[in-house]
Amino acid sequence: MRVYLPSTLTAARAVLRDRTVPAGTAFAVTPALREWYSQSDTEEMEFAALQNAARACLRLLDADPDAPPRRFVFAADVEEKGVRVRDDLERGAVEVLEPVPLASVRAVHTDDPADDEAQAAVRAAVDAVLEADLGSDDAAFVVDGAEGFELLWFATQELADLL
Rank of each mutant, 00 (worst) to 15 (best):
Ala75Pro: 00
Glu46Lys: 03
Leu102Ala: 07
Ala53Met: 05
Arg91Trp: 07
Ser104Gly: 07
Asp115His: 11
Val122Glu: 03
Asp62Lys: 09
Ala114Thr: 09
Ala53Ser: 10
Glu90Arg: 06
Leu102Arg: 08
Val105Trp: 08
Glu46Ile: 02
Asp138Val: 13
Asp112Leu: 08
Ser38Lys: 08
Glu43His: 03
Glu131Asn: 02
Glu44Ile: 04
Ala53Arg: 00
Pro101Trp: 09
Glu44Cys: 02
Pro101Phe: 11
Val73Ser: 10
Ala121Gln: 07
Ala56Glu: 15
Asp41Phe: 08
Phe74Val: 04
Ala63Asp: 08
Glu43Pro: 02
Ala48His: 02
Leu97Thr: 08
Arg86Pro: 12
Leu60Met: 11
Ala56Cys: 09
Leu58Ile: 08
Glu98Gln: 15
Val73Gln: 04
Val126Thr: 10
Leu58Pro: 00
Asp115Met: 10
Ala139Val: 04
Thr110Ser: 13
Arg106Ile: 14
Ala132Gln: 05
Ser38Thr: 01
Glu98Phe: 15
Glu44Met: 07
Asp62Ala: 15
Val108Gly: 03
Val122Lys: 04
Pro69Ser: 10
Pro69Arg: 10
Thr110Leu: 12
Pro101Gln: 12
Glu90Ile: 13
Leu97Asn: 00
Glu95Ile: 10
Leu97Val: 13
Leu130His: 14
Ala76Pro: 07
Val85Trp: 12
Glu46Gly: 02
Leu102Ile: 10
Leu97His: 00
Glu95Thr: 04
Asp112Pro: 01
Glu131Leu: 14
Asp133Gln: 06
Val129Ile: 15
Arg71Ile: 05
Pro69Met: 05
Ala125Pro: 00
Ala76Asn: 07
Arg55Leu: 15
Asp64Phe: 11
Leu61Val: 08
Val78Gly: 02
Thr110Ala: 15
His109Gln: 04
Phe141Met: 13
Glu95His: 00
Glu98Ala: 15
Glu117Ser: 07
Val122Trp: 04
Glu46Ser: 07
Asp116Arg: 14
Leu61Met: 14
Phe47Ile: 05
Ala118Ile: 00
Val73His: 03
Ala120Cys: 08
Met45Ile: 02
Asn52Val: 00
Ser104Phe: 14
Ser136Ile: 06
Leu50Phe: 13
Asp111Tyr: 12
Tyr37Gly: 09
Asp116Gly: 13
Arg91Lys: 08
Leu61Asp: 02
Ala140Thr: 12
Asp77Trp: 09
Asp137Pro: 00
Arg71Thr: 03
Ala75Gln: 07
Ala124Thr: 01
Ala107Cys: 06
Phe72Gly: 01
Asp133Ser: 11
Ala139Lys: 06
Ala54Pro: 01
Ala125Asp: 01
Pro99Asn: 07
Ala54Ser: 14
Val108Ile: 14
Asp87Trp: 14
Glu79Lys: 14
Ala139Cys: 09
Asp112Phe: 09
Glu95Leu: 14
Glu90Gly: 03
Val108His: 03
Ala63Cys: 03
Pro65Cys: 13
Val126Met: 06
Ser40Tyr: 02
Thr42Trp: 08
Asp127Phe: 05
Asn52Tyr: 11
Gly92Arg: 01
